[in-house]
Computed example of a mutant assay.
Amino acid sequence: MILDALKKRIFDKNEKFTGKWIRELPYVVWSLRTQPSKALAGNTPFFMVYGSEAVLPADLQFGAPRLAFKNIAEAEATRIEEIDLLKEEHLNSVIQSAHYQQTLCRYHDRNMRPRCFSIGELVLRRVLKTTGQHKLSPP
Protein backbone atom coordinates (compact mmCIF):
# COMPACT_ATOMS: atom_id res chain seq x y z
CA MET A 1 0.00 0.00 0.00
CA ILE A 2 2.85 2.35 0.82
CA LEU A 3 4.60 1.70 -2.49
CA ASP A 4 1.38 2.21 -4.48
CA ALA A 5 0.71 5.50 -2.71
CA LEU A 6 4.30 6.63 -3.24
CA LYS A 7 4.10 5.84 -6.95
CA LYS A 8 0.97 7.96 -7.29
CA ARG A 9 2.56 10.91 -5.51
CA ILE A 10 5.99 10.99 -7.15
CA PHE A 11 5.62 9.54 -10.63
CA ASP A 12 6.10 12.07 -13.40
CA LYS A 13 7.15 11.03 -16.91
CA ASN A 14 9.06 14.26 -17.52
CA GLU A 15 10.99 14.34 -14.27
CA LYS A 16 13.30 11.94 -12.49
CA PHE A 17 11.97 10.83 -9.14
CA THR A 18 15.15 9.62 -7.46
CA GLY A 19 15.23 10.96 -3.92
CA LYS A 20 11.68 12.35 -3.98
CA TRP A 21 10.23 9.32 -2.23
CA ILE A 22 12.01 10.08 1.04
CA ARG A 23 10.29 13.50 1.27
CA GLU A 24 6.87 12.03 0.45
CA LEU A 25 7.07 8.97 2.74
CA PRO A 26 5.90 10.68 5.98
CA TYR A 27 2.85 12.12 4.20
CA VAL A 28 1.95 8.74 2.71
CA VAL A 29 2.28 6.95 6.06
CA TRP A 30 0.25 9.66 7.81
CA SER A 31 -2.52 9.40 5.21
CA LEU A 32 -2.69 5.61 5.58
CA ARG A 33 -2.82 5.83 9.38
CA THR A 34 -5.60 8.42 9.42
CA GLN A 35 -7.78 6.81 6.75
CA PRO A 36 -10.83 4.79 7.89
CA SER A 37 -10.47 1.10 7.22
CA LYS A 38 -13.22 -1.37 6.42
CA ALA A 39 -11.27 -4.08 8.24
CA LEU A 40 -11.28 -1.98 11.43
CA ALA A 41 -15.05 -1.42 11.44
CA GLY A 42 -14.70 2.03 9.89
CA ASN A 43 -12.09 3.23 12.38
CA THR A 44 -8.65 4.58 11.59
CA PRO A 45 -5.48 2.73 12.64
CA PHE A 46 -4.52 5.89 14.58
CA PHE A 47 -7.72 5.66 16.62
CA MET A 48 -7.19 1.98 17.35
CA VAL A 49 -3.72 2.67 18.74
CA TYR A 50 -4.16 5.98 20.57
CA GLY A 51 -7.86 5.97 21.48
CA SER A 52 -8.76 9.24 19.78
CA GLU A 53 -8.73 10.60 16.28
CA ALA A 54 -5.66 12.42 15.02
CA VAL A 55 -5.58 16.18 15.33
CA LEU A 56 -4.90 17.54 11.89
CA PRO A 57 -2.99 20.79 11.38
CA ALA A 58 -6.09 22.30 9.75
CA ASP A 59 -8.10 21.51 12.92
CA LEU A 60 -5.61 23.48 14.99
CA GLN A 61 -5.41 26.37 12.56
CA PHE A 62 -9.16 26.87 12.16
CA GLY A 63 -10.20 25.89 15.71
CA ALA A 64 -12.27 22.76 15.21
CA PRO A 65 -15.17 22.42 17.69
CA ARG A 66 -13.93 19.05 18.95
CA LEU A 67 -10.76 20.73 20.24
CA ALA A 68 -12.48 23.50 22.22
CA PHE A 69 -12.87 22.78 25.95
CA LYS A 70 -13.90 25.32 28.53
CA ASN A 71 -12.02 23.73 31.42
CA ILE A 72 -9.63 20.92 32.27
CA ALA A 73 -12.28 18.84 34.10
CA GLU A 74 -14.42 18.68 30.96
CA ALA A 75 -11.43 17.58 28.90
CA GLU A 76 -10.52 14.89 31.46
CA ALA A 77 -14.10 13.57 31.54
CA THR A 78 -14.12 13.38 27.76
CA ARG A 79 -10.81 11.52 27.77
CA ILE A 80 -12.11 8.91 30.26
CA GLU A 81 -15.19 8.45 28.08
CA GLU A 82 -12.98 7.96 25.02
CA ILE A 83 -10.95 5.27 26.82
CA ASP A 84 -14.15 3.35 27.60
CA LEU A 85 -15.26 3.75 24.00
CA LEU A 86 -11.91 2.44 22.81
CA LYS A 87 -12.43 -0.92 24.53
CA GLU A 88 -15.78 -1.31 22.79
CA GLU A 89 -14.28 -0.32 19.45
CA HIS A 90 -11.49 -2.89 19.85
CA LEU A 91 -14.07 -5.63 20.36
CA ASN A 92 -16.15 -4.37 17.44
CA SER A 93 -13.04 -4.30 15.26
CA VAL A 94 -12.14 -7.88 16.14
CA ILE A 95 -15.64 -9.01 15.16
CA GLN A 96 -15.61 -6.89 11.99
CA SER A 97 -12.13 -8.13 11.06
CA ALA A 98 -13.21 -11.76 11.37
CA HIS A 99 -16.29 -11.07 9.24
CA TYR A 100 -14.18 -9.20 6.66
CA GLN A 101 -11.66 -12.05 6.42
CA GLN A 102 -14.45 -14.63 6.00
CA THR A 103 -15.93 -12.52 3.20
CA LEU A 104 -12.55 -12.28 1.46
CA CYS A 105 -12.05 -16.03 1.85
CA ARG A 106 -15.46 -16.78 0.30
CA TYR A 107 -14.74 -14.38 -2.58
CA HIS A 108 -11.34 -15.95 -3.18
CA ASP A 109 -12.69 -19.50 -3.06
CA ARG A 110 -15.56 -18.64 -5.42
CA ASN A 111 -13.23 -17.16 -8.06
CA MET A 112 -10.40 -19.71 -7.91
CA ARG A 113 -10.33 -22.74 -10.13
CA PRO A 114 -8.52 -25.67 -8.57
CA ARG A 115 -5.60 -26.94 -10.61
CA CYS A 116 -3.69 -30.15 -10.12
CA PHE A 117 -0.29 -30.75 -11.65
CA SER A 118 1.45 -34.07 -11.84
CA ILE A 119 5.16 -34.72 -12.03
CA GLY A 120 6.32 -34.62 -15.61
CA GLU A 121 3.60 -32.30 -16.96
CA LEU A 122 4.73 -29.29 -18.94
CA VAL A 123 3.70 -25.83 -17.71
CA LEU A 124 4.19 -22.40 -19.21
CA ARG A 125 6.35 -20.16 -17.07
CA ARG A 126 6.75 -16.45 -17.81
CA VAL A 127 10.23 -15.02 -17.30
CA LEU A 128 10.16 -11.28 -16.69
CA LYS A 129 13.01 -9.06 -17.83
CA THR A 130 14.63 -7.03 -15.08
CA THR A 131 16.44 -4.52 -17.27
CA GLY A 132 15.27 -0.95 -16.82
CA GLN A 133 13.42 -1.68 -13.58
CA HIS A 134 13.83 0.31 -10.38
CA LYS A 135 12.77 -0.36 -6.80
CA LEU A 136 9.22 0.94 -7.38
CA SER A 137 8.63 -1.33 -10.38
CA PRO A 138 6.23 -4.26 -9.95
CA PRO A 139 7.95 -7.55 -9.16
Score class of each variant (00 low, 15 high):
57 P>G: 05
54 A>E: 05
49 V>N: 06
86 L>G: 00
38 K>P: 07
40 L>V: 01
18 T>L: 08
28 V>F: 04
97 S>N: 14
71 N>A: 02
70 K>P: 00
56 L>Y: 03
82 E>F: 12
82 E>H: 12
87 K>W: 09
47 F>P: 01
90 H>I: 08
38 K>T: 12
127 V>H: 10
18 T>N: 02
5 A>Q: 11
89 E>H: 08
23 R>K: 14
97 S>C: 14
89 E>T: 00
87 K>P: 01
130 T>Q: 13
48 M>K: 05
3 L>M: 05
18 T>W: 06
24 E>F: 04
68 A>F: 11
103 T>A: 12
83 I>K: 15
33 R>Y: 06
97 S>Y: 15
38 K>D: 15
10 I>Q: 06
51 G>C: 03
126 R>C: 09
83 I>W: 13
115 R>H: 09
83 I>H: 13
4 D>Q: 13
18 T>P: 01
54 A>C: 13
115 R>F: 04
139 P>R: 05
34 T>V: 04
99 H>L: 14
51 G>N: 04
19 G>E: 04
48 M>W: 04
20 K>S: 08
137 S>K: 07
108 H>R: 07
76 E>F: 08
54 A>H: 04
92 N>G: 01
93 S>T: 12
57 P>E: 08
50 Y>K: 02
46 F>H: 02
30 W>M: 03
107 Y>H: 10
102 Q>K: 11
130 T>K: 14
76 E>L: 09
33 R>H: 10
94 V>C: 09
49 V>S: 11
93 S>D: 02
112 M>Q: 10
103 T>S: 09
31 S>L: 14
31 S>E: 15
38 K>I: 09
128 L>Q: 12
81 E>K: 05
19 G>F: 02
33 R>Q: 07
1 M>N: 06
138 P>V: 01
34 T>Y: 09
3 L>V: 01
80 I>Y: 12
6 L>W: 06
118 S>G: 11
46 F>W: 04
4 D>V: 03
131 T>N: 11
92 N>S: 09
